[in-house]
Amino acid sequence: MTRFKLFIPLIIFMLVGAFFYSTMGRISEGDYDPQALPSALLNKPLPHFALPKLENDQHLVQPKDLLGEIALINVWATWCPSCHIEHPYLNHLAKKLDVVIYGVNYKDENKEALRWLKNKGNPYRFNIVDAQGKLGLDLGVTGAPETYVIDHRGFVRMRHQGPMSGAVWTQKFLPLIERLQQEQAAHSQQEPSKG
């Protein structure tokens, strides 16, 4: 028994080590992100805003302009390195998979942003200009890129921090979007007159 006691610290050390090692594995596989924060807006409607459209700055966009469809809201900027990385995949989503994506051009220059879209392709239905980062603040953005999923009522259902990719799409977004589509279908069945 006393001999066994001598090994207790070693056993504790090995358990702690195993825990850290498995956590490192989960971080590198993307199962766990110590930086990830659940959005404070989860299951809440979009905050109010009235901001100019990038494509036409005479037109003010409001939350009601984003309603009706399950959509992504992608917060991006030309100064953001990870946005370069995710941009081709956003193009793929919009053009091949018909995903509705609204852009929030976050703390950026309009001229730079328009040039970026011309050169790299435009996956966005339209872009909201958030030059001051006010909408970003109301959304709880911590940095670009971030991607939100809204349902057809305009409720925020998920927030993803960091670049979008094929793996992220299939693991995180697709299951949720399939569920939201079912919700939407059930909803429109309940109120066929409004459909």
Binding site: S39, A40, G140
Partner: peptide, 8 residues
């Protein structure tokens, strides 16, 4: 602050 960024 909490409304935007949570109790975090």
């Amino acid at each position: 602050m909490v409304e935007r960024y949570g109790e975090f």
